[in-house]
Amino acid sequence: MRRTERYPVKEANSLWHIYKTVPFWKVVKNFIVIQVARYTPFLPVKNWLYRNFLGMKVGDQTAFALMVMLDIMFPEKISVGKNSVIGYNTTILAHEYLIKEYRLGDVEIGSGVMIGANTTILPGVVIGDGAIVSAGTLVHRDVPPGAFVGGNPMQVIYTKEEMEQRDKENPLATNN
């Protein structure tokens, strides 16, 4: 189960309550910063924008590819460790608005993590250090450190131990 806080709503669906949950001008500012960063080819500038304007924790040498879409309403709930790669057009969400409730959850991406292109990461998940997430994956639960995962729904393809064993058996298959 993902680690999210649930907030029930009455009457209309939760998206109709959006500006009761997050200030309008915060959303406007975040939208502008995220759109500028999505098209910026300069990785240090992106990380600076994310840290200083969105309140994200971003480790050194982390690379956000072009078109990465961060949560507009709650980007401060996203943290990424050092030397990780977030692939092209990945979406990272820290909220979900549903019919009868909305949910908020921190997203923690470890160090040395590789996220493939077109991945969607849902709120309340932890992606462990050294994990690899295949392109096009829906990350709907935690990813163990060092694991290789993929698919929709996400499945563990190899654990860290299985990958290490495979690398011992076939040294040419390593990514060194």
Rank of each mutant, 00 (worst) to 15 (best):
T137M: 04
F74G: 02
M69H: 14
V85L: 12
V113W: 09
V68A: 06
N89L: 05
V156G: 06
V36L: 15
N30E: 01
Q165S: 14
V68N: 05
D167A: 11
G124K: 04
H95Q: 08
R38C: 02
L54A: 10
T159C: 07
K160R: 14
K160T: 01
G146I: 00
K10E: 13
N175T: 08
H17N: 10
K20N: 12
Y97F: 15
G151E: 02
M69L: 13
R38S: 06
Y50L: 04
P23G: 11
L104M: 08
R3I: 00
D142Y: 01
W16M: 09
I92K: 06
V113Y: 09
R3E: 15
V58N: 12
I99V: 14
V149G: 06
Y97R: 07
G112A: 04
T119H: 09
Y88L: 14
D71T: 11
N170H: 06
T91V: 14
L93Q: 10
T4K: 04
T40I: 04
V133G: 13
F74D: 13
D60W: 02
L122Q: 00
L43F: 03
Q35V: 00
G136N: 07
E169A: 14
H95M: 10
I18H: 08
F42Y: 14
R166M: 12
G87Y: 08
K46R: 15
T137R: 02
N175Q: 08
R51F: 03
Y158Q: 08
V143M: 12
G124L: 11
L93E: 06
Q61G: 02
A63D: 08
L15V: 09
Y158L: 15
I99A: 15
I32R: 03
Y88G: 07
R166P: 00
Q165K: 15
P145T: 01
K77Q: 13
T120S: 10
V125N: 10
P145S: 08
P44W: 02
Q35P: 01
L98C: 12
I109F: 11
D60N: 10
E11D: 14
I99N: 13
F74M: 11
W25P: 05
P145R: 03
R6F: 00
I132M: 15
I121L: 05
G136A: 06
N170G: 04
A12D: 14
E11K: 10
M163I: 14
M1K: 02
V85G: 12
E5L: 07
I127R: 08
V33W: 01
M69E: 15
M73K: 12
N83M: 01
R6G: 01
S134N: 13
F148C: 04
L98V: 06
D142W: 00
